[in-house]
Design a protein around this nucleic acid. Structure first.
Lengths: 335, 335
DNA sequence: GTCCGTTATCGAAGCGCTTCGATTAGTCAC
DNA sequence: GTGACTAATCGAAGCGCTTCGATAACGGAC
C-alpha cells in the first residue's frame, strides 16, 4: 500500500506538504503542487480513509436512514437514496446506509463512533422517537419530513399542504365544482406521519377558498377497497367530476373503476394523482399529477448538511413548492 | 469524547486489556471483563471507527453498488439493499452505498482508501467492465449475477435457467400443451445481462423435454406492446392455454388483454409470472409466480463475503433454487 | 541596511486504537 | 523444589494521516 510518505519521498517534499497539496489548506508553490500531483498519479496514491478520519476528525461519510415500512413507496425511497448518494459524491462524501429498523441505537452508534460526520433521516413521524437523540448528537442532521416539534432541527420536504391545494386549484380552473380526495389508508393518517394530513388540509382549505364542494376519503391500499369507495362516491355524489388520488397503489384501480361505472376519464371525471412521475406517465390514460421531487429533496438535504458541517447557518425548514404536471387525465368540466 | 484510555483508567486496567475485552482476542479473567464492560457502559464508550480501522486495517464496512438502469425492478433492488444491510449488521458491519454510475473508479476508490473491507456488486453484465478491476483489488467481492467469465470471482443469484424450467413444468403438470413466454424487452436480451436469456433457455429446454410447443417472445415494457403481443399470440396460436410472463411492468396488462380477448384466467389461459411476490399477490387474480429471493440472495452474499474475509474457502458459484408459488392464475387445462 | 510581512516548506506531535512481545502469577508433573 | 506450561495483564510501538508552530527565503517599505 502506498502512503503519504512514499509520495513525499517520490516528489522530494515532506509528508505535510503532500497533505497540504491535497487539502489546499496552505499555499503551495505552483511547481511543488505539480510535482506532488504527478507523484500521486504515478504511484496511484489514495489516502487511507481511517487515518484521515482519525487525524482530522472528519470521515467524509454521511449516514442515510431509510424507511422500511409498508405504505412507503419503494421507488420514491430509492430515488431519494440515489440522489443523496449522488449529491454527497459531489461534495466528496460517501453514504452509509441504515435501515429504520436500526432506530435510535443505530444513529447513535454511527455518530458516536465517528463513522459518519452527519445524518439524514427519512420518513420522519410527527412524534418521532429519534428526534431527542438527533438533538443530543454532536453531529448535524437533516430530516426529510416535518415532525410536530421541529425545534433545533433542520427539515426539508415537499410542501404537501400546497400540493393538496394546487390539485384543487387545477380542478377548479377546469371548472369542476364537486370533487373528492381519495386519500391514503386510515393508518397513515393515524400514524401521524403528517404528510397525508397536510395534503388533506391543503385540499380542504382550497376547496373552501374556491367555494367548491369536496371532502376527504381515506382508502385502504387494495383494489377492492378502491372499487368499493369509487362506487360509493359515484352513488352518493352524482355531480362528482373531479378526483384527487393520494394513494399510489390504487390510482390505476380508481381510473378503471370509474370507467367500469360508465364514467369516461377525463371527459366525465377528471383525475389528478399524487404519485411518482414515472407511474403517472405510464398510467392509462397518463395522469395529471404532482410528484414528490425526490431528486431535489435528496440533493438539497445534502446541501443543507454540508452547510451545517461548515458551520454556516441554514433555514430550519425548507418546503419545496409542488409542481403539477398536466397530462391526459384531467380536462375542462362538461356543462 | 470518551476514549479507550478513559475506560481503562475507570476500570483500573490498561488500554490493551480493554481492547482485548472488546475483541476477545486474548483471554481475560471473568472479573476483569465484568469491570471493563461495566466501565464501558457507564461511560458510554464507543470505539472510534477511524482509529480502529487504522490500527486494525479493518473498517467493518462493506460497499454495495446498486444499479440505476431502467428495466431494473426498483423494489427488488431495494429488497436486496435492505437485506444486505441487515445481514451485514448481524456480522457487525455497515454498508456504504455506491451507485452504478460511479463505476470502476468508485469501486477502486473505496477499496484503495480502505474505506471498505469488501464489496458487493449487483446487476452484473455478461461482459462487465468492473470484472477486471474486482479481480485486481486486494479486497474480496461477491457478484450478484453471473458474467460470461466468472473465473476467480464469487457469484450468487437465482437459478434463472431452473426458474424458466420450473414454470414450464408447472404448466405441463396442469396439462397445458401449447404455451408461450412473454419475455423482457429486446434490449435486455441484447444487453447480455444473462438472466433474461437464461430464463428463455430454461423455458425452451423444458418445453422440449416435456414435448410441448412453446416459444419466446420478447416484449417492450409498455402496455401497448403487451396488448399487441397478446393479440398476435392469440390470433396465431388458437390452442394457446399457458403463458409465462417475465416482464414485470406488463404482467397486469397481459392478464387484462387476455380477458379483453375473451379468455378467462385461469379457466381458458393459465398465467405464471416471474416477479416479486408482492406484485403477484396484489394482482387480479393473484398470480402463480416465481420470485427473485432477494432477501436470501442479499443475506447469502454477505455471508460469502464474511467467509472470504476470514480466509475461508467459498464456492465460486451459488445458484439459488427457484420456488414457484401457486396462486389463482394457473389451473388445469380444459379438455 | 534593518524590519516586517508574505509565501513556501518542514518536522514533530498526536489522533485513538490494536497488537506484539514481555512479565508476573499460578498450576502441575515429577 | 524445579522446570515447563498456561492464563492474565501491561507497556510501547506503530497504523497513516493532519496540523501546528518554526524556519527560511524573499520582497518591499522606510
Amino acid at each position: 500500500m502506498v502512503k503519504i510518505t512514499d509520495v513525499a519521498r517520490h516528489a522530494g517534499v515532506s509528508p505535510s506538504t503532500v497533505s497540504y497539496v491535497l487539502s489546499g489548506k496552505r499555499s503551495i508553490s505552483e511547481e511543488t503542487r505539480r510535482r506532488v500531483r504527478e507523484s500521486i498519479r504515478e504511484l496511484g496514491y489514495r489516502p487511507h480513509a481511517g487515518a484521515r478520519a482519525l487525524a482530522s476528525s472528519r470521515s467524509n461519510v454521511l449516514a442515510l436512514m431509510i424507511p422500511l415500512r409498508s405504505g412507503i413507496a419503494v421507488p420514491v425511497v430509492m430515488q431519494f437514496a440515489v440522489s443523496v448518494v449522488t449529491a454527497a459524491r459531489r461534495h466528496d462524501h460517501d453514504v452509509l446506509l441504515l435501515t429504520q429498523e436500526e432506530g435510535e441505537d443505530g444513529l447513535r452508534r454511527v455518530a458516536d463512533s465517528a463513522l459518519v460526520d452527519a445524518l439524514i433521516v427519512m420518513d420522519v413521524q410527527m412524534k418521532d422517537p429519534r428526534l431527542p437523540l438527533l438533538r443530543s448528537l454532536d453531529r448535524p442532521s437533516v430530516l426529510i419530513g416535518f415532525p410536530a416539534d421541529a425545534d433545533d432541527l433542520t427539515c426539508i420536504d415537499l410542501d404537501f399542504h400546497a400540493a393538496g391545494a394546487v390539485c384543487v386549484e387545477h380542478l377548479a380552473e377546469l371548472g369542476h365544482r364537486e370533487i373528492a380526495l381519495i386519500g391514503s389508508p386510515p393508518e397513515v393518517y393515524a400514524r401521524q406521519t403528517g404528510y397525508a394530513q397536510r395534503v388533506a388540509d391543503g385540499f380542504a382549505e382550497a376547496v373552501r377558498a374556491h367555494g367548491l364542494s369536496g371532502d376527504v376519503h381515506p382508502c385502504e391500499a387494495t383494489a377492492d377497497a378502491a372499487r368499493e369507495l369509487v362506487g360509493r362516491l359515484l352513488a352518493e355524489r352524482p355531480g362528482l367530476t373531479g378526483v384527487l388520488v393520494h394513494n399510489e397503489p390504487v390510482v390505476g384501480t380508481v381510473v378503471r373503476a370509474l370507467r367500469a361505472a360508465g364514467r369516461r376519464v377525463p371527459e366525465d371525471v377528471s383525475v389528478v394523482a399524487m404519485c411518482p412521475d414515472e407511474m403517472a406517465e405510464h398510467a392509462e390514460p397518463p395522469l395529471s399529477s404532482v410528484a414528490i421531487p425526490a431528486e431535489e429533496v435528496g440533493g438539497r438535504a445534502v446541501d443543507l448538511l454540508m452547510a451545517k458541517l461548515e458551520g454556516a447557518p441554514v433555514p430550519a425548514a425548507t418546503l419545496l413548492p409542488p409542481t403539477l404536471t398536466r397530462r391526459a387525465s384531467s380536462a375542462p368540466a362538461a356543462h
